[in-house]
Design a binder for these strands. Structure first.
Lengths: 212, 212
DNA sequence: TGATTCAGTGAACATGCGTACACTGAAATA
DNA sequence: TATTTCAGTGTACGCATGTTCACTGAATCA
């Protein structure tokens, strides 16, 4: 009753159309920003008539929220994979810069969406992204708190650490997204800068806690 | 021939209208973002007929560029004033957090505009903002380079320092802009966090250069 | 097999948009 | 004072938008 590929059941077809609407929106929003997209443009790019849009989303805002969710699930998968990799634990900074650039490159559309709509975009989309980012900072805090040097820091300090890391990551991710494909020289430079910044923040923390 | 206030010469009247168009755009862009504004909305808010807009700006993009310039001249005045103030030199971190919150509060529209349009907005406006921010980072670098501890750092290191500072300032400025008027409790919290972050970055630099 | 559900269609609408154009009347100029 | 300049007006246009509604026909169900 359930096939895995190319299903032609009604539900599967609906899901496929829904996904193609989301892909279309993601694709178009790279050029002019999600907030500027019209329902008709998205429907057109998805190869569907404008009214069909309503079978899947009540409004563009609802589509935006779905994209936020999808983007952050990508982000979460990234941090989960990173935790599994033994190299990461061994040399967290080198590994993080490497992973950041690689994963962002593979998901330019999602990361671009988050970076762009974080500050502007519609109220509801912007707020959703900020909530997700805060959540992500907290989650990273939990991960950091398990690391050797950090285990007895105060909650506030750990939060500051992950906040600085995440915000710097977001900034460097923006740069990766804006890098034209194939410019590995620019990517290497971004990695180098990201590493330096992370190293500096870590040094700051070492001094910080030997201080307080 | 030249009066100072309420001039009614043709040029002065034109300048007044131009300014009211810019004010209108700034006011409206706080709600839905500059990129979503229509020429007609801006003209309406400025109390002028749509076609009159063209007497002052060739397009919305040109208006956007004018707003970028105006916003950054505010930002530059802020850093210039800060350098004059002896308190700033004495305790750069405490003073910076104080000044940041105060000046951003007084110019929410300008700072909100920069923060919002930095990542999204039209290509031409976004690029102008990024260029201005890079310039601002370089300028801050020059200021930092004169400070006692920093004077013999490498150019790259100074640039990293001011980059981290500015990016963190931009983030905290975004928060101040989003704070409802009168919530001094939230503002104090932002100041506190900004101070902690700056202190941490400075500690990192101390360790950094005793290292290399 | 016959009835039902429902993802996607296509025409129609009111509205807001950018811009062209001919205009007005007060300030600037000669 | 007579002429010119030009910031701001008012009309008119073609176009894209969001949303409505009645529809079609294949997948689902009884």
């Amino acid at each position: 009753m359930t096939e895995t590929a190319g299903e032609s059941t009604r539900a599967a077809q609906k899901e496929r159309t829904r996904q193609s609407i989301m892909d279309a929106a993601l694709r178009l929003s790279q050029q002019r920003g999600f907030a500027q997209l019209s329902l008709r443009q998205v429907a057109g790019e998805a190869g569907v008539v404008p009214t069909a849009f309503y079978r899947h989303f009540e409004s563009m805002d609802e589509l935006g929220l779905a994209l936020v969710e999808q983007s952050f699930s990508t982000l979460r998968r990234m941090i989960r994979d990173a935790q599994r990799d033994p190299d990461t634990i061994a040399n967290i900074i080198e590994a993080s810069a490497e992973i950041l650039v690689r994963v962002v490159k593979q998901n330019k559309a999602h990361f671009g969406f988050v970076a762009r709509e974080r500050a502007s975009g519609s109220d509801v989309v912007r707020e959703a992204i900020q909530r997700e980012l805060e959540l992500f900072i907290s989650e990273l805090g939990v991960v950091l708190a398990r690391l050797p040097h950090i285990e007895n820091w105060s909650g506030d300090d750990v939060k500051m650490a992950s906040g600085l890391f995440v915000r710097n990551m977001v900034y460097r991710a923006e740069q990766v997204v804006q890098t034209p494909d194939g410019r590995t020289d620019i990517e290497e430079d971004i990695k180098r800068k990201a590493r330096r910044e992370m190293r500096l923040i870590v040094l700051g923390f070492a001094a910080w806690n030997s201080d307080t």
